[in-house]
Design a protein around this nucleic acid. Structure first.
Lengths: 238, 238
DNA sequence: TAGTGGTCTAGACCACTGA
DNA sequence: CAGTGGTCTAGACCACTAA
């Protein structure tokens, strides 16, 4: 049943795993070129890339589009039960956060967004698209959709900040009930482009639907995390 | 920047997605042979398999080792905050659960298990390995590790049942605090063999560390879910 | 036993990155 | 501009599944 075939792909994976574990290839460092590696392991690039793909699936290495393969840094711990935001969470774990705004505008809500925010047909929503980094590495692509009724003039503020803080300081709005939905999936074209990785890379999609202190639906986020950058932790009390 | 290249792989993905969405290929049905498909799309098997791999990453299709490709059924909703167990959860969602025991025995605890259960060095633990199905499809491989001090004679019972119920009925032990850790990763050799899929298939690993009503660490589970079979949902109260 | 998926070879061209 | 990754071709053999 188990045959432990000494497949070429398996052998390459083992060799690279071992080098990484023992710190010969340290977190964030770049692997040699694919052609170099395929020569080193006496195989073809196709076979070598299959091995790299498996290590990527495991979350041990990752790639940046056209730049090569790198050793994955440790995962960020994400606790949905703790009210926090990206910058605080990353900082608390001793890492460097960064945010860039890709676009921010009012647009017609798609049917899916209308459903999430319980808006009537043909509503407008404020969409904010952002990309976020940890220690310089792009790890998260987010689309925020805000109910414009609650956030007049929000597009005039600095949107690289935490929205949580902005809501509190400018609108006296705080998060109340929140619903999280997490689905392992792959990056679509837009998310892949924003994170500078190839379409179809594995990802964890986290959808958040947020209510405020009065129980009103105020906004929702659709987050795409690189699958190797995150670790979700939930502590359930008695 | 965006170039929307009409790549062969992308075109194949689009075509198959469209057929699946419109129900021409229904949930659970088998795709034609790879050679047939590569002929149909006028390309090589390598290229075709790249496209299938992307659809697999998205969770739209899955494969069974050496049996072919199938359209993925809907995901099971998994809510860590709701105390339930596999059979109840699956049944409530209108699906057919099934469990098989792969092995059950007392063995020396690995260092990792000692740490999770806070056992002294060189302890023994009870290991139960099981595979679980939804509507006939293998979706979950689990390793349970029980502190033997709390469960004398547990190996003599029927272990295809829910352990939650067994603990309650035979030992008056109920779950108290529970800690969940969820990590997107790939299936290792044992898990892949149990689920009859290829090593390195994407998966969601959920580690549960369970305490009883007295706050004692009683057991832990290491679950490997097929990544396209699950959808984690968490509702956070105010 | 026929057909299928799993694996591998040995190349090729292009677009882009980084020096 | 050299080198790299992204993509693709056109085959091959083997082990296993299903009839």
């Amino acid at each position: 049943m188990r045959d432990e075939a000494p497949r070429a792909v398996t052998a390459i994976c083992r060799a690279l795993e071992e080098q990484i574990e023992h710190g010969l290839l340290s977190s964030g460092s770049k692997l040699p070129a694919e052609r170099k590696l395929s020569e080193l392991f006496a195989t073809t690039r196709i076979t070598l890339r299959e091995a790299l793909g498996q290590l990527e699936a495991q979350g041990l290495i990752y790639r940046e589009e056209r730049r090569g393969w790198f050793v994955s840094p440790p995962r960020l711990t994400y606790n949905p039960l703790v009210r926090s935001h990206f910058h605080a969470m990353v900082g608390e774990q001793g890492r460097q956060p960064a945010t860039e705004v890709l676009s921010a505008r009012l647009l017609p809500a798609s049917a899916a967004i209308c459903a999430l925010l319980e808006l009537p047909a043909l509503s407008s929503v404020i969409q904010i698209r952002r990309a976020r980094r940890i220690d310089g590495r792009l790890v998260l692509y987010v689309e925020h959709y805000l109910n414009p009724a609650h956030f007049p003039g929000v597009l005039t503020f600095d949107l690289t900040r935490s929205l949580t803080e902005l809501y509190a300081q400018q609108y006296d709005i705080f998060y109340g009930r929140v619903r999280f939905d997490m689905v392992p999936t792959a990056l679509h074209v837009e998310a892949a482009a924003a994170l500078k990785v190839s379409v179809g890379s594995p990802a964890l999609r986290i959808t958040r639907i947020n209510r405020d202190q009065h129980g009103r639906l105020i906004d929702c986020d659709i987050e795409y995390w690189r699958h190797d950058a995150i670790h979700v932790s939930v502590e359930v009390p008695e």
